[in-house]
Design a protein around this nucleic acid. Structure first.
Lengths: 328, 328
DNA sequence: GTGAAAGCGCTAACAA
DNA sequence: TTGTTAGCGCTTTCAC
């Protein structure tokens, strides 16, 4: 049991609780002598302030909420790692919750954040979120919410995204520079905001090149991507496959390997990715970077601004960068 | 601001705070009428109990600490995901902190756990931890600590590990079944408890087969593994490479691909892994499974026992399973 | 079946 | 420079 409290220290030293409290915070009012006595004794008794008591009294929790569909994901894990690291440096802790893409759990998690009186929330919407009540309640309570990755469509919210349109444009440019005649573009779940943005931008870029065949498909996970790729390769001869994400890429790679195909000779490959998977292969797969880490750092610094009231709601973008490999 | 409190509800209803408190917990003393009135009003006013106040009063935090070197890791992310999921189902939240393999941060993190009065801690030691004071303090405070992955050597602690010895034995068995004459075994940082256990067990298994050449090397990360593999392949002709972990495997795979080698024809491959990386390749790489998820679930259920005082300190093992691929 | 009161550990306004 | 006091929101014992 934690049994060293301000009261105990004050009793031993024969001074008041408030003096002890002040001394421990290096309040200038307190004489050096007293201060030192208090600090020494606190040290000796392993005093450790009760965070709940402090938070109850000050209404300032130094706790941030972070919700993702799942922690176990190439992208989210780097996002979380970055946020946690920056938060720690600023004296914040992070309460990380998974929604499992279940709107009911999402709602419960938001409630948990509220009950813990978090100072702010980072949230990636679950796939099937339609009811935004949980988030609206956050707004009522003046708890800033910074959305990332899969974000709501409404304006007037804090959103941190990668430059989805630009990344798709970059991909299109790279493809159009080459003499490819047929392009297979594989996207993720069409409900996701990132899917919509990337898909629209890619299609737009190809509109002025009607001679090039653009085959667009959607896959909810790696396995689906794998199957769809097989099916498409049975019917078509795309020169290049564009993957919207690592998850898609994984499925595509399996199919390619299963069929004994080699990139870039038999077919070219281009993806949007965190970088982990593309670098596992040789030649390295060319990708447009989505850095969970950069996104996380930006999200955290924006959160800090929100908490300090210095930020109107806006969408911030992490720039898209092409990382050349040997697959195009 | 959260402004609905028990007090407010009690004032509106003209009853006492304690009655409100009881009604909200479905205390049998309270009449159905009163109870319903209270519950309805609480609902209408979006009452959400202040977790800090509850914890301050009850000294029961429903909060668990979890510390890893980094969240962004194939193994830890699955461990964390499993713990978080099970914890949520039992009404616990998890405070996840990264040590970055820095003993100083590790100590600070433990302090943070204490200040937040967590009910228990899951900890994977940082690489260079020598000072166990932070953990001893946990013991003094009766806060159970469940170690996992990289665990201390001392007895009398709660440890959740995979069956490291057995996994190395399984690997050795599989290798010895084949006509391999030379084996390159790559291990991680020799300070890690898992490295020591796996290495010793593997060496032991080969002692009775002195004719087989066993080359043992250590690499601190993927890049080192990549370089070492190059160097070893320059000098030797191993028939098979055994990798202690995904991190090592990644480096080895790069070298193999760079050299245009193919498994299992030119060289065989065997690894201990979570499964993610081995399944990315075709043929799939044969591996002995370390399931972060299984470890996490076991760790959590053991933690629950510890919290309820039903558990003496012991080391629990997750069994090693061979997952056959096409690389041996 | 309900209320009064004490107190968890801390901070901060006000007094001295 | 230090102490007194009130109170954050909640639970729980004891009394009625």
């Amino acid at each position: 049991m934690h049994n060293t409290t301000l009261k105990k220290i004050s009793e031993i030293l024969g001074i008041s609780i408030s003096t002890v409290s002040r001394a421990l915070k290096h309040h200038p009012d307190i004489s050096l002598k007293t201060r030192q006595k208090v600090i020494d004794l606190a040290e000796a008794l392993d005093y450790e302030p009760n965070a709940s008591a402090v938070q109850l009294r000050t209404r300032n929790s130094k706790l941030l909420g972070l919700m993702v569909p799942t922690i176990s994901n190439y992208f989210y894990e780097t996002f979380i790692a970055a946020v946690e690291e920056d938060a720690r440096k600023q004296g914040y802790s992070v309460m990380i919750l998974q929604s499992g893409n279940d709107p009911v759990i999402e709602l419960e998690n938001l409630k948990l954040f509220r009950q813990n009186r978090v100072s702010g929330v980072f949230a990636c919407l679950s796939l099937s979120t339609t009811d935004m009540k949980g988030f609206e309640r956050m707004r009522e309570l003046d708890i800033p919410v910074v959305f990332f990755d899969n974000v709501p469509e409404e304006d007037g919210l804090h959103k941190i995204c990668m430059a989805d349109e630009k990344s798709a444009q970059l991909a299109a440019e790279l493809i159009l520079q080459q003499p490819y005649q047929s392009v297979l573009a594989l996207f993720g779940n069409p409900q996701l905001s990132i899917t919509k943005k990337r898909e629209e931008a890619l299609k737009l870029a190809f509109q002025s090149h009607p001679k090039i065949e653009l085959l667009v498909e959607h896959a909810g996970n790696s396995e689906e991507a794998q199957n769809i790729t097989h099916a498409m390769l049975d019917k078509h001869q795309p020169d290049i496959i564009f993957c919207m994400s690592d998850e898609i890429l994984i499925g595509v790679l399996k199919t390619i390997q299963q069929r004994g195909l080699h990139y870039p000779d038999n077919i070219a490959l281009l993806t949007i990715s965190n970088g982990t998977i593309p670098k596992l292969f040789h030649p390295q797969i060319t990708y447009i970077e989505t850095s969970g880490e950069k996104l996380g750092r930006l999200a955290f610094s924006h959160m800090l601004n929100c908490i300090n009231g210095n930020s109107e709601a806006k969408e911030l973008l992490v720039d898209a960068v092409l990382v050349k490999g040997g697959s195009v």
